[in-house]
Design a protein around this nucleic acid. Sequence first.
DNA 1: TAGATTGTTAATCGATTAACAATC
DNA 2: TAGATTGTTAATCGATTAACAATC
Lengths: 206, 206
Amino acid sequence: MTERLTVGVAARLSRYLQVLTQARKMGKERISSQEISEYTNINATQIRRDLSAFGRFGKRGVGYRTDGLLDEIRQILRTQGQHNIALIGGGRLGSAIASSPIFAEHGIHVAAVLDNDPDKVGQRIGDLTVSPIEELVEIARERNIIVGVIAVPADSAQDAADALINAGAKIIFNYSEALLDVPADVTVHTSNPAVDLLYALYFHLA
Amino acid sequence: MTERLTVGVAARLSRYLQVLTQARKMGKERISSQEISEYTNINATQIRRDLSAFGRFGKRGVGYRTDGLLDEIRQILRTQGQHNIALIGGGRLGSAIASSPIFAEHGIHVAAVLDNDPDKVGQRIGDLTVSPIEELVEIARERNIIVGVIAVPADSAQDAADALINAGAKIIFNYSEALLDVPADVTVHTSNPAVDLLYALYFHLA
DNA sequence: TAGATTGTTAATCGATTAACAATC
DNA sequence: TAGATTGTTAATCGATTAACAATC
């Protein structure tokens, strides 16, 4: 099982992880492939197939133990540790991200919020104080940060990306609509809800 | 060309749409499949293949006209009109979404922000005033809304979904971590940046 | 002409699905 | 035993990629 997962399998396992995390919070002790399918829109046979490639985690006639399956998938995805991330942008979106419980639930800790606007520096967001962008290099080194989240307007996004790259970040989540130019060893995930929406509308209208 | 696109093709065309929109804003008149590939991480051959299924849009040795290709893809995805959407939640995330230029750029108009918290009702967010959730049915009917965005804490998310469904929404974008139970004719897109991040980390660490 | 890039073919690989025996 | 659900097979379909002629 030391082989690298394909992109598709890893993406699907991540979705199962999300459903299982919530199902556990709702007190569900067992879950069937059919139930996971309803929440993810992934075919139930596909789910059983994905899982059975790593072991026999389920019980026929019963389903999967929520807790046990969660642990197995975490092991497969190697996502059991704590990860520190840096957030660039102390505006509305930055505040929303920094305060969201979504990250903590999965072992992800927003270690710092930075901004290049002197008016924002020093403001408090939840437990954090906004730091000047100049401190990013030091913070990233100290806190072992390789993931950065960009929550600034499109016209500042490339500057934010450059600062992150300069500080050693290898994974960037871009919540602006800007296209970012980055070196080959840096991965960018751009989130664009408007485009996702057009995609969803296509299937509704077609 | 009246046939329905496969899920994969529609998803990729949406990504091209995003890149082309930004490339046009940056004043780029022409773009090659290789350039689109660098921004989307989709194989350049795949891109040419996807496009050539609908016509010969490019010029050999030159590339594609940004403007022209944008129009072609919009036609294929049938996303040329204006769409009104309703946003539930007037907190930090809701404000960020309502104020974001990302939607307007693609013809999507946040027509109303609603909240069940009396303290939030009446507050202004950009051009909008937060309305009580009770007004959703009427607003949805008047503004022809079938898309709803949920930007409330997880423990209110199902209530928000129920209100949207009751008002006739068929597509729901869920920015909480909650799992939503909805009728079969309603599509839910749940965004969970933490899970996306674990997925990205897997490939970085592996 | 030389260089660049599209459009297309052909081959391979992974995803998807139906069906069903195994078994709880 | 009866019902439910997993694990697995087999068949199909779409995605991916390399290669390259066409052509701007």
